[in-house]
Amino acid sequence: MNTFSPSLSKRKNILKTISHSHSQWKGRIFLAGVLILLALGILSYTVVLLVNHRTSTFGIFIFLCAGVCLACVPFFIGLSVKNTAKFKCALPYSSYANASLLLGEDALEYVFWRVGPREPAAYSSKHAVYKDEDKFIYRINKENINSIDIKENICKIKGNGSVQMPEWAEEDSTVKKTSKEFSFIMAFEQGDVAKIIAEWRI
């Protein structure tokens, strides 16, 4: 059996490429940039006011606190918009975390954890926690594979596969237990994964 372990650095780079090619990427990042610039503008304006209008130490403190509080609103909204863009523009691959690939004698298994936009794992954090009972397993027998196509670090598999999932996910109607087509990014520590998959498929 061949086992390929996850690479956080490769995952981050591949997702970056995918998200940047999405049609909504530039618009979302532009909005995030405007909001962050607005926050910096508010802080700068506060400093200018304090320089031009001398006041007491307490007055300076009050003005600075008010400026920082006002600036925090667009700043954090801007960061949220940026993170949302990173996540949504790379779906569904950004929602698959800590993924490993197993090539058995008769079947292929892709083991992953499904994550949301507010979870550290979505952004390849080293501090993410993965519970064994929450993992998903995509499995397809070699004889049921119609085709495997690997392009631009994305592996697409067509055939009769199945998805084993935790109990909490079985109630989600958007998650399918069977899959005619499944794809994942080639974010693994080992090299030549595409070549090994091709040889295994024969």
Score class of each variant (00 low, 15 high):
Gly59Pro: 05
Asn52Leu: 12
Asn153Asp: 13
Phe188Trp: 05
Phe58Leu: 04
Arg139Tyr: 06
Arg118Pro: 00
Leu70Ser: 10
Tyr130His: 15
Ser44Thr: 10
Ile137Asn: 01
Ile62Val: 15
Phe61Leu: 14
Arg118Ala: 11
Ile60Trp: 12
Trp25Pro: 04
Ala128Leu: 09
Ser56His: 08
Gly161Thr: 07
Ser56Asn: 03
Thr57Arg: 09
Lys26Met: 06
Ile29Trp: 04
Ser162Asp: 12
Leu43Arg: 08
Asn98Ser: 03
Thr55Gly: 07
Val51Leu: 05
Glu167Phe: 07
Ile202Lys: 07
Ile202Ser: 15
Ala85Leu: 06
Lys10Ile: 11
Phe61Lys: 11
Val111Arg: 07
Glu167Ala: 13
Val81Gly: 01
Ile18Arg: 00
Glu199Asp: 03
Ser125His: 07
Ser94Lys: 01
Lys16Gly: 15
Gln24Asp: 08
Asp134Leu: 02
Phe136Ile: 12
Ile36Cys: 15
Ile154Gly: 00
Gln190Lys: 01
Glu170Asp: 11
Val175Pro: 14
Ile140Gln: 13
Leu108Arg: 07
Tyr130Thr: 10
Gln24Ala: 07
Ile140Ser: 08
Gly78Lys: 02
Leu15Met: 03
Leu103His: 05
Val73Met: 12
Ile60Ala: 08
Tyr45Trp: 03
Phe182Arg: 04
Tyr130Ala: 14
Leu35Asn: 02
Val81Arg: 02
Ile197Gln: 03
Lys131Tyr: 09
Ala187Lys: 04
Val163Glu: 02
Val163Asp: 06
Ile18Ser: 05
Ser44Phe: 09
Trp113Ile: 08
Thr17Ile: 05
Arg28Lys: 09
Pro92Gln: 09
Lys176Asp: 14
Glu181Tyr: 02
Lys135Thr: 05
Met186Gln: 07
Asp106Glu: 12
Thr178Phe: 15
Ser80Lys: 00
Phe136Gly: 02
Leu15Tyr: 00
Lys26Ser: 07
Leu37Ile: 14
Ile202Trp: 02
Trp168Ser: 10
Lys177Val: 06
Ala32Val: 13
Val34Ser: 00
Tyr45Asn: 11
Ile197Ala: 11
Leu64Lys: 06
Lys151Leu: 12
Ala97Pro: 05
Leu50Gln: 13
Gly191Tyr: 02
Lys195His: 13
Phe63Ala: 09
Ile148Arg: 01
Gly161Tyr: 11
Val115Met: 00
Ile197Phe: 04
Leu49Pro: 01
Ser100Met: 12
His127Trp: 15
Leu64Trp: 13
Gly104Asn: 10
Ile14Ala: 01
Asp134Gly: 02
Asn83Phe: 06
